[in-house]
Nucleic acid binder design. Structure first.
Lengths: 144, 144
DNA sequence: ATATGTGCAAATGGTTTGCAGTGAG
DNA sequence: CTCACTGCAAACCATTTGCACATAT
């Protein structure tokens, strides 16, 4: 999805609910709207500080939490490496995670809907979303 | 897998590496060897305390961490609800999680290997394991 | 006998919260 | 003007660590 378009979606969702667009918040939104690298809170913090040096970690957390609540960011919680965020594709989708360098990429994969339907039928659950992660070494780390 | 057999596997893995089998540890192992309910550390703690009231949380954590290190327990880390553990099937497999009551069940599903191969081919990653979670309401919670 | 495991208490670290001051709408 | 947001510091809480004692082997 086009970054500017995605950013506008997020802005619109915030405005609809009466939330304000501050410079710090805008900086976070921009990072999350691209977020091809699925950044951590700490990573977002470091980036935002380049433009707004007084920004606090708490502000990043508050913004990310808000976006989570209104469904504008997808949280990937890992037991060992903390959470990573995807604001570009905030809906459930597969990920491939490099266990060495921590890179997270989105493979293209379409048939999850079929699998989800099959799961629901067999289990009796009313399935609302899913999460599928593959772990391994990315091409770069395989030669390291 | 048969519970007694699974327990023996874990015991064997511990003995091989020179770890001792204490009563407290045995209690944890038994719980994890069945673990159809994918217990949390706190839940394991409460159960163990029924038989060994002086057991400390730290001991549970240490045992679970040890089992994780030797690959005898699978950790499911959730950003919002902490970690849950599966010592009965310590290898990657799908889960269905009730977002209301927190129940976690294992559906039977075989074709993950195909999907994993396909993923590896398309991404260039050397995939070592995966994780697939479906979230929704279990049959019981749908009528609640 | 020996060194691994236990249990307690303290430390840790990521995340959240309270609150006074700031600024977007 | 108002009320949501920011930034700081303190609070939180799950998990980890240090250490003296206990005990499995």
């Amino acid at each position: 999805m086009d970054l500017k378009e995605r950013l506008n979606q997020i802005l619109e969702a915030l405005r609809q609910r009466g939330h304000r667009i501050t410079p710090q918040r805008m900086a976070v939104l921009k990072i999350l709207a691209e977020s091809k690298n699925h950044p951590s809170v700490e990573s977002i913090y470091q980036q935002v500080r380049q433009d707004f040096p007084t920004t606090s970690l708490a502000t990043i957390y508050k913004t990310v939490t808000l976006l989570k609540e209104i469904g504008q960011v997808l949280e990937l919680g890992f037991a060992d490496w903390g959470s990573r965020y995807d604001g570009n594709k905030p809906f459930p989708h597969p990920h491939i995670i490099c266990t060495k360098c921590g890179a997270i990429v989105d493979p293209d994969y379409a048939s999850m809907q079929e699998i989800t339907r099959e799961m629901a039928r067999k289990s009796g659950f009313a399935i609302s979303h899913h999460r599928l992660d593959f772990f391994g070494l990315c091409p770069k780390c395989q030669s390291g």
